[in-house]
Design a protein around this nucleic acid. Structure first.
Length: 556
RNA sequence: GCUCCCGUAACUCAGUCUGGAUAGAGUGCCAGCCUUCUAAGCUGGAAGCCGCAGGUUCAAAUCCUGCCGGGAGCGCCA
C-alpha cells in the first residue's frame, strides 16, 4: 500500500519511489488518514511554502487515484491518504489465511547457532536465567519463522571454585541429606557454603584442597560426589526447560574444555598472538579491550580460553552461517575480547560470531545475588505464579479437569511476557508484587483475549456469507494492526528484539478488546465478516505469541 | 580514572535506530459499564521543564557536545 502511494507521488516530484516510501508515515490521529507524506523537505528545492506544495500536489494527485485509495487531502504540510477500507479488509483476510503469513524469508537457507540460558551447576537458576532463556528461545523462533535453520545450544559451568565450595559444604554439614535434583535445595547448599566461609579463613584452605582434587580427578570419593551432584543439577533443569518450552540441540559443559582451552592458549602463544609474563594473555589494549588472561600463572585454564575452544567446537559440530551468544550484560567486555581474539587468530567464522547482551534483573531495592541467596529461584517463583493463576481460575469458576494445565500455561505466559516485553539491553526491575498481577499489559491479558476470540469462533454455528457492509472504526483499527504483523516480525528479526513483537501483541489484543465491546459478532448482520476478522486476530496473536515462546489456551 | 548501558506521568515501561502533526501505554488513583459472544474486560478523567545546559535544523524525547544522577565492566571468578 505504501509502495502504491509512493509511486503515485513519484510521478509529481523528483524523488525516487524508495526515497518517498521512507518518508511516508502513519498519522498520529485516526481521522487524519491512513498514510501521510510530509512536504517540508520539498520546500527548499522548490522554493515554495510547504503548505502550498501540499495543496498543489493534492490537486494533481486527486485526479489519478487508484482504486485502493479512496481519498487524499492535506493538512498543514502533510498530504494524507485514505485507503479504501473494504479493499484493505479483503487484503488482510486473504493474507492471514496464507500459510506463510508473517514470514519475510529474511533468513532463508541460512543456518544459525544460538547459545543461551547458560546456568551453572550447583547454583541457583534464578530470574536472570529466566530472562536469558526466554530471550534466547524467542529469538530462535523469530529466526525460524524467517527461514533460518536454528541450532539451540546451551553451555554450563560445571567446574571451578563455586563447585568446590558446594562439595565442601555438603560433606561437612549436609552429608546426611540425600542428593536431590531439586533446584532450591542445591542452591541452598551453595548459599550455606558462602555463609560459613565468610567467618573462617581456615575453611577456605579446605575448599582449595577440594578444588585441587576435583581438577586432578585423583580422589575417587570427590570425583564421585562431583559427578553425582553435577547430574542432580542438570536433572533439575529438565523440569524448568520443559515448563518453559525450551529444548536444546546440544548442551556443552565447561569441564569438556579444560584441555582444549589450554591447547588453544598455548597455540596462540606459539603463533605469537598471545603473550606471556607470569600468565598467558591477550594484549588487547590497542583495541581498548584491556588484557585478557587465558591461563593462570600456575598453568590452569580460565573461562576465557575455554570460550575460545567452545567457539571452535561449535563450528566443528555445526557448520553455520552465523553464531550468536545471548549473555548477561556484565559479560559484554569478555565477549568483545573473545570476538577480537578470534579475529586475530584468523578463526574462519570470526566475522559471523556475535553476541547479544541483556540487562541484569534487579530488585527495586538493588542487586540480586546467588552468593547470599538474595534472589528469586525459578521454581519458587513459578509455583507462586502458578498458584495465583489457579486461584484466579477458581475464583472465576473456570474449573474443570485441565485446570492445572491451564493455570500452568497462564503462569508461563505471565513470566515470559514480563521478561520479553522490555528492551533486552535495559536493566529490569523485578517487583514480585507486580509479577503476580495479571491485569493490563500482561501475559494473561493476551491469553484471555485469545480465549475470548476462540470462544466466539467455537460458538459460531453455520457459515454465514462474508459481506462487508460498513466498517466501524474498531474494525478498521484491528485490520490495520493485523496488516502490520510481518513488518514487526521483520524489525524484530533485524534488531534481535522480541520486545517489539511483545508490544505488538499487546496493542493487537487491545484493539481486539475494543472491537469486542463495540461490535457484536454472533447474530449480527455482519456475522460472516466479523467471524473472519475474529479468526484473523486469533491467528495473528497466536503466531505472535508463539514467537515469544508463549502457548495459547482455547479457554481461560 | 577509563569504557559501555540507562535517565520520559506517583510506579513500571513504549516511543530514540530512520528527527515531523496535540509525547503514548500499563499499574495505582477518581468516575462510569456485566438481562447480549468470558469484567483477567471496556469507556472517561486527573497526572509530563521527555535528567540539566548548549548546539545542528523550517522542525529535537529522537541527532551532536558538555555536565549531573543510576547501573555494569575494566589482569589471572564465570
Amino acid at each position: 500500500m505504501k509502495n502504491k502511494i509512493a509511486k503515485l507521488i513519484a510521478k509529481e516530484i523528483k524523488l525516487s519511489v524508495v526515497e518517498i516510501e521512507n518518508l511516508i508515515e502513519i498519522p498520529p490521529m485516526f481521522e487524519m488518514g491512513d498514510f501521510a507524506f510530509p512536504c517540508f523537505g520539498l520546500a527548499k528545492s522548490l522554493k515554495k511554502n510547504p503548505l502550498i506544495i501540499a495543496e498543489d500536489l493534492v490537486k494533481k494527485i486527486r485526479k489519478k487515484l487508484p482504486r485502493e485509495i479512496s481519498n487524499v487531502d492535506f493538512k498543514g504540510a502533510y498530504i494524507n491518504f485514505f485507503i479504501d477500507k473494504k479493499i484493505l479488509a479483503e487484503d488482510v483476510l486473504a493474507k492471514v489465511k496464507k500459510k506463510n503469513f508473517g514470514e519475510n524469508n529474511l533468513g532463508k537457507g541460512k543456518k544459525i547457532v544460538i547459545e543461551f540460558s547458560q546456568p551453572n551447576t550447583h547454583k541457583a537458576f534464578h530470574v536472570g536465567h529466566i530472562r536469558g532463556t526466554s530471550l534466547g528461545e524467542s529469538l530462535a523462533r523469530i529466526f525460524e519463522i524467517e527461514g533460518n535453520k536454528v541450532v539451540r545450544v546451551n553451555y554450563s559451568g560445571d567446574t571451578g571454585m563455586h563447585i568446590a565450595k558446594w562439595i565442601w559444604c555438603y560433606r561437612k554439614y549436609h552429608a546426611k541429606e540425600k542428593l536431590k535434583g531439586d533446584e532450591t535445595w542445591i542452591a541452598g547448599i551453595y548459599v550455606d557454603a558462602v555463609k560459613r566461609l565468610e567467618n573462617n579463613e581456615n575453611f577456605q584452605k579446605e575448599v582449595d584442597e577440594i578444588n585441587r582434587k576435583i581438577e586432578s580427578k585423583k580422589d575417587k570419593e570427590i570425583n564421585d560426589l562431583w559427578e553425582k551432584t553435577r547430574v542432580a543439577s542438570i536433572q533439575s533443569w529438565d523440569k524448568i526447560y520443559s515448563e518453559l518450552g525450551v529444548r536444546f540441540d546440544k548442551h556443552y559443559f565447561e569441564s569438556e574444555f579444560d584441555n582444549g582451552g589450554k591447547k588453544v592458549a598455548e597455540d596462540l602463544l606459539k603463533k605469537n598472538i598471545a603473550k606471556k609474563d607470569d600468565a598467558i594473555f591477550m594484549n588487547l589494549k590497542k583495541y581498548n579491550l584491556g588484557v585478557w588472561v587465558l591461563l593462570r600463572r600456575d598453568g590452569t585454564v580460565l573461562y576465557s580460553a575455554k570460550d575460545i575452544a567452545l567457539a571452535y567446537k561449535k563450528v566443528k559440530d555445526f557448520f553455520a552461517d552465523r553464531y550468536l551468544v545471548v549473555v548477561g550484560d556484565e559479560q559484554k567486555m569478555h565477549f568483545e575480547q573473545l570476538v577480537k581474539t578470534l579475529e586475530l587468530a584468523k578463526f574462519p567464522k570470526s566475522k559471523v560470531c556475535a553476541f547479544l547482551t541483556f540487562g541484569m534483573v534487579r530488585f527495586p531495592e538493588g542487586k540480586m545475588s546467588s552468593r547470599n541467596g538474595q534472589n528469586v529461584l525459578y521454581s519458587d517463583f513459578s509455583s507462586e505464579v502458578f498458584n495465583v493463576a489457579k486461584e484466579g481460575l477458581e475464583a472465576r469458576s473456570c474449573g474443570g479437569k485441565d485446570i492445572d494445565e491451564r493455570a500452568s500455561k497462564i503462569a508461563i505466559a505471565a513470566i515470559k511476557y514480563s521478561m520479553l516485553k522490555q528492551d533486552p539491553k535495559r536493566v529490569m526491575i523485578f517487583d514480585s508484587k507486580k509479577a503476580l498481577a495479571f491485569e493490563g499489559d500482561t501475559g494473561p491479558y493476551l491469553l484471555y483475549s485469545y480465549a475470548r476470540a476462540s470462544s466466539i469462533v467455537r460458538k459460531a454455528k453455520s457459515k454465514k456469507i462474508v459481506k462487508i457492509i460498513d466498517l466501524k472504526n474498531p474494525e478498521i483499527k484491528l485490520l490495520k494492526k493485523i496488516d502490520g504483523f510481518e513488518d514487526v516480525v521483520a524489525r524484530a528479526y533485524e534488531n534481535l528484539a522480541p520486545n517489539l513483537i511483545a508490544n505488538y501483541c499487546f496493542e493487537l489484543a487491545q484493539m481486539f478488546n475494543e472491537f469486542y465491546h463495540s461490535c457484536p459478532v454472533l447474530g449480527s448482520d455482519e456475522e460472516g465478516f466479523r467471524l473472519k476478522l475474529v479468526d484473523a486476530f486469533r491467528v495473528t496473536l497466536g503466531k505472535g505469541l508463539s514467537l515469544l515462546g508463549i502457548e495459547t489456551i482455547e479457554e481461560m
